[in-house]
Amino acid sequence: MHTLLLTPAEAAAELRVSRAKLYQLMKAGLIDSVVIDRSRRIPRAALTAYVDRPRGLEQQDAA
């Protein structure tokens, strides 16, 4: 069974990127996250949405 929410470390591992890169993607608004108390969690659906985005949008979002 897959968990609904992932820790930043788990989400980074799923994407095969560093935790720092994951935080950059969240800060840029490319990956959604939620805060529960003082813990940040990333919905699994947010990772799927990021991967399924049409390519090239990252450069447009950064401009």
Rank of each mutant, 00 (worst) to 15 (best):
L15S: 03
G29S: 08
D32L: 11
R16P: 02
H2Q: 15
D37S: 08
Y50G: 06
V35I: 15
S33W: 06
G56L: 14
D52I: 01
H2S: 15
R41H: 09
E14N: 09
I42V: 14
A13D: 03
V35L: 13
Q60H: 04
R19L: 09
Y23R: 07
D32K: 08
R16C: 05
T3Y: 08
Q59K: 09
V17C: 15
P8N: 11
D61P: 06
I36W: 02
A49Y: 03
Q24C: 15
E14Q: 10
E10Y: 05
R44C: 09
R53T: 04
G56F: 12
A9V: 10
L57K: 01
D52G: 00
A20I: 15
P54L: 00
L47S: 01
A63G: 12
A20G: 09
R44A: 12
Y23S: 09
Y23A: 13
R16F: 01
A62V: 08
Q60T: 08
R53N: 04
D61E: 11
H2P: 15
A12H: 11
L25R: 04
T3K: 12
V51F: 00
E58K: 05
K21Y: 13
A11T: 03
S33Y: 12
K21P: 02
L30N: 04
L6Y: 09
A12C: 09
A62N: 10
A13M: 06
R40F: 00
V17K: 11
A28I: 04
S39L: 12
D52M: 05
V34K: 02
E58V: 05
I36S: 06
A63S: 07
M1Q: 12
L4G: 03
P54I: 01
R19K: 13
V34Y: 01
A12L: 07
D32W: 08
L4I: 11
Q59G: 06
R53G: 02
E14T: 08
L57P: 01
L6D: 02
M1S: 13
M1F: 13
Q24W: 15
S18D: 12
Q60G: 03
L22C: 03
P54W: 03
M26P: 07
I31L: 10
T3P: 06
A20H: 14
L57F: 06
V34M: 00
Q24Y: 15
D37K: 11
A9Q: 07
E14F: 08
S18T: 14
V34D: 00
G56W: 13
L15V: 04
R38S: 09
Q59R: 13
V35P: 06
A49M: 02
V51A: 03
Q59D: 10
T7D: 12
M1C: 10
G29T: 08
L47K: 02
D32R: 14
A45Y: 04
V51M: 03
R55K: 08
V34R: 03
A45L: 06
A45I: 05
T3C: 04
L22Q: 01
E58H: 06
Y23H: 15
A63N: 07
A63F: 06
M1H: 13
L47I: 11
L5G: 02
T7P: 07
T3R: 06
V51Y: 00
A46M: 05
E10K: 08
A13Y: 00
S33I: 05
R53V: 01
V35S: 13
